[in-house]
Amino acid sequence: MENTFPVLHGLADLRLETHPIPPLKPNDVLIRISKVGLCGSDISLVYKGRVGDSVRKPPLGVGHECSGVVTKCGPAVKNFKPGDRVTIETGGPCRTCDLCIGGRYNLCDQASFHSPLGRYPGCLARYYIHDADLCFKLPDNVSDEEGAIIEPLAVAVHACRRASVELGSSVLICGAGPIGLLCLLTAKAMGATNILVTDIKENRLKTAKNIGAHHTLLVDDSDPKILAKKIKDVMGCMPPITLECSGTQSAITTGIYATRSSGVIMLVGVGSPQVTLPLVHAGMREIDIRGVYRYIQCYPAAIAMIANGLIDVKPLITHRFKFEEFQKAFDMFHTGEDGAIKCMISCD
């Protein structure tokens, strides 16, 4: 049995290849991939050769947001059977290091989104082998496309949990891209009642408003202190929580100036490896700057939020492509043309 999937051989050099599917290990499941969503980290990997400060060497598979159908199970798998619809928590922590044992398996050195070509290609493939313990059944009322958005939604859940978003929270969200909009939906579902979303694109702010933002603010090249003052005026307060989802130096700086003393700014977006920030200002106001990487046991909550109607992710899917159109999908998402927010590729 063979598998077909794009392989990254160099910057912007994706080639469709076919390779044999390796034998399953005892706890593996073979998944026929249905839908794959493109993420900013996929774009960074393909066109920059890195994700944040992590440089990845080709050949590499691509894609990590997916849903699919179990087609075969290893002999030790008890909780799945062929025909089960699933979403997968990509990566594979070692489960033996101090971080894994301590419950921070998301930070394990082996838990990479994009695995080298071999046993695990990217999820953008006809088939994918994964550990059954990191697969989750999809309820009947959760579509394949929604199932593919569980992965980035889990990032938003993890970010909001680490920021202690709760009933009545005021939250500033910098960046109305896919992860910023998912953070908006998650924060609102967790009880935030005063959410402002900023972005440099009016069409994305319109989407933010349509899905529940209480306020939006179009930002420009103004001084971050001036923008922070505008944020305070619009929200009626300095927010105690900022979710920075753009990864840009200017937005992080604005977030530091806008966040209330003793508040927290979460670095959700991934941008340049090095940025210059007003750290002394943050330190003297006791603003906590925290990182977010992936998620920790957030998939059940993310699935339940969609299944129970707490959030609606469907408006975020703006473009759809066939498997054979993967290059077109990457190029369009890379350029940002046509107002793309979430591009979905069908592998059926």
Rank of each mutant, 00 (worst) to 15 (best):
M1S: 14
E2Y: 15
T4F: 07
F5S: 08
V7P: 00
V7T: 13
G10D: 15
G10A: 15
R15H: 06
P22K: 10
P26G: 04
G40H: 05
S54R: 14
R56D: 00
G63L: 11
N79E: 15
P93M: 06
C94K: 02
D98T: 13
R104M: 11
C108L: 10
D109E: 15
A111D: 15
H114P: 01
Y128E: 10
C135D: 05
C135P: 04
E146M: 08
A148T: 11
E151L: 05
L153G: 04
V157D: 01
H158M: 05
S164M: 08
S170W: 06
S170N: 09
S170Y: 05
C174R: 01
C183Y: 02
L184E: 00
L185M: 12
T198A: 04
R204N: 03
I211A: 00
G212F: 00
G212L: 05
L218H: 03
V219Y: 01
S222I: 07
P224I: 10
K225T: 09
K232M: 14
T248R: 03
A251C: 14
T253W: 01
A258R: 02
A258E: 06
A258P: 05
R260I: 00
S261I: 03
G263Q: 03
G263M: 05
M266S: 15
P273E: 05
Q274W: 02
Q274K: 14
Q274T: 15
Q274Y: 13
L279R: 05
A282T: 06
V292M: 08
A302T: 07
I303E: 05
A307L: 07
A307I: 08
V313I: 15
F323A: 15
K328D: 14
E337T: 14
C343P: 09
C343D: 10
S346G: 12
D348S: 12
